[in-house]
Structure formats: structure tokens, C-alpha cells
Amino acid sequence: MEANELISTVQSLEPAATLRDKVDRPAMSVPKESVPALMRRLRDEPALSFDMLCAHTAIDWHNENRIELVYQLYSTKHRHYLAVFVSLLRDMPVVTSVSDVWRIAEWQEREVYDMFGVLYRSHPDLRRILLDDDWKGFPLRKDYKDEFMLEAPK
């Protein structure tokens, strides 16, 4: 499916979805409330059938006080990509898990929790994945500091 067509299809599914610019593949910003329902539609809609969650990660926009989640979707059937962006408040990043839509989301969400502290509602097993269970802080946040860190090189 062409990029424009793809975007308009997504917008027909979720009117609140807006185009996310400065991304080099079709990308939509959606409100966080619509996440699990929209994701399920994206997967099940025959014209879209995004059956694979390639990667799920987050970007910490420290200055704007928000964390932006990125869901990179791929359809093995139609061979097209879509990136879905969800903005969360940096102080209380809570979103509903999509682990029942794509199995792999369970672990990718754990990683995002581990690195950014994003909390996932109705996640079956939310715990740290790469760091120890008792680790303090979320390392990929821009303001993360610990005693092992060296100063950034000039």
C-alpha cells in the first residue's frame, strides 16, 4: 500500500491520528488512549494486517517533558511499514500494553520500562529485563545519572 493511502486508512480508523513528520517512513501520532484498540485494528484489518511488531522503543524528549513511544509495524503479507508514535507525559508515563496483540510486545515493553520507566497497564509480567530488579533509575532517560558514569566527552 502506498504511504498516502496507508495514512488515510489509519486516519479513517482513528480520527485523532495525525501525521508525524520528519520520519522517513509512514508515521502516525496517535493519542495514548487509542493504543490497544487501534493496534488490534491495525493488525486485524485485512487491508493493513500489520502482523509483526518489528521494534518497540521510546524517545525521551527531555526538554518538552514527554516520552514518545515508537511502535514499528510491518506486514509480512503486504510488505509495508508503519511507525506509530504515542506521546506520554514524562512524569507519569502510563500506557496500555499491546502484549496481547503481538506476543513480542511483552518483552519489548519490558525493555522500554527498564530503560525509560514507562508503565504498561495490563502487562502480564512487568519487570526489568536487562538490568537488575533492584536497579535505581531508568538509564536511557536524558537526565539519568549514576556513580559509574563518566562525564560526556567534550
Binding site: 520528519k22 521494534a55 515508537v70
Partner: peptide, 30 residues
């Protein structure tokens, strides 16, 4: 902007997501 690339390694798809704020150092790299 946000830039993607993917290659097929011996084990599968290796993808890079660069989040750039216009500098020569990535803002975030996934």
C-alpha cells in the same frame, strides 16, 4: 528527524533508528 534502516544479517533483521536533532551526534539511537 527520525531515520530508519534495516539490513538482513545472518540471524535476521538488524534495524537502526536514528533520532537526530541536527547535530553530528544522535539524540537517540535505537
Amino acid at each position: 528527524g527520525i531515520h530508519y534502516s534495516q539490513v538482513e544479517t545472518a540471524r535476521g533483521i538488524f534495524g537502526v533508528m536514528l533520532v537526530s536533532d541536527g547535530k553530528d551526534v544522535p539524540y537517540r539511537i535505537h
